[in-house]
Amino acid sequence: MLTITIASVVAVGIATTAVLVTRGDDEPSAHASKPAAARQEPSPSAPTSSAPDPLTSAAASDPEAPLGGDPKVPDRTGKAGYDASTALDTWSSSNPKGSDSHTVGGNTTTGGGGPVTEVLRIPALGSGWAQPVYEGVSDRQLRAGVGHFPGTERPGQIGNYAIAGHRSGVASPAFRNIDRIKSGASISVTTANRITYTYKVVSIQTVAPTNVNVIAQVPGKPTATPTKPVLTLVTCWPANGSSKRVVVTADLLRSNGGTSAR
């Protein structure tokens, strides 16, 4: 379970308000794709942070800073799908099917953002859509795939497994078409141990970039004690801007362990 506070996450330079970021030129504008009930704004008491937001730029205080992070960091998003597929193949071949009820770890695989910790798949974004998940939400990770917020839980654990990704500003934004994700959609996360966790989307909301509660153990309730595993995706809103954040929250449905990474 998460043992550090949101404040400590911010202290190491992680903006806890990040949301999946992707260019969405073909997406409906504003809240057109979201039901009224899902368009929640943060309460006035929502905590805020002045830390740089990983979904925009390290120079977040600069209004001219480009979306997509620091352009001096190589943009490897065009290779993200290949890196995700390579990770799945490597884990599958190094962890043979049916060897034991207790899974063993697959061989380490790396991509543009460093070691791949998991592979994220969202059918609503395409039958072949897959992204490597890297540890951290710095430009190195988010300009190569999607990043896991350090200090939040791992897949399948009680608490919040929180991920950020770009929606615009890079060659192939992970969450370009985030508006295609609707309530009830499935999201799967596969680990090197060949365990696949399947989540079901339960809420989609738009919040201010300063709302740090979205990646709390219980999303939106930083003082609550978690009782179930959840997954949170964070990215920018609108499609080509960063005035707010889109937050997708999903509950764990099931896990399939040790038999297939595909």
Rank of each mutant, 00 (worst) to 15 (best):
M1S: 12
T5H: 02
T5P: 11
I6R: 11
S8L: 12
V9C: 14
V9R: 14
A11N: 02
T16I: 00
A18Q: 07
V21H: 13
G24Y: 11
D26H: 13
S29T: 13
A32F: 10
A32S: 11
S33A: 04
A37V: 04
A37E: 07
A38D: 03
P44I: 01
S45E: 06
S50E: 05
D53R: 10
L55C: 14
A58S: 03
E64V: 04
D70I: 03
P74I: 01
P74Y: 06
P74K: 00
P74T: 03
D75W: 00
T77N: 13
G81M: 07
A84P: 12
A87N: 09
D89V: 07
W91T: 00
S94D: 03
K97R: 12
G98W: 15
V104I: 10
G113E: 00
G113M: 05
P115V: 07
E118N: 07
I122N: 01
P123L: 01
G128H: 07
Y134S: 07
G136F: 04
R140S: 08
H148V: 07
F149A: 11
F149E: 12
R154N: 14
R154E: 06
P155D: 10
G156C: 10
G159L: 03
A164L: 00
A164P: 09
V170C: 04
I178K: 10
I181W: 11
G184C: 06
A185Q: 02
S186I: 06
T190A: 01
I195G: 15
I195P: 10
Y197M: 10
K200I: 00
V202N: 11
I204N: 12
T206M: 01
P209C: 13
N211P: 02
V212D: 10
V212T: 15
V214Q: 06
I215L: 05
Q217E: 09
G220Y: 04
T223R: 02
A224E: 06
T227H: 03
L231Y: 11
T232K: 08
W237V: 04
W237T: 06
S242L: 08
S242G: 09
S242Q: 12
K244H: 12
D251P: 05
L252C: 02
G258Q: 12
S260F: 04
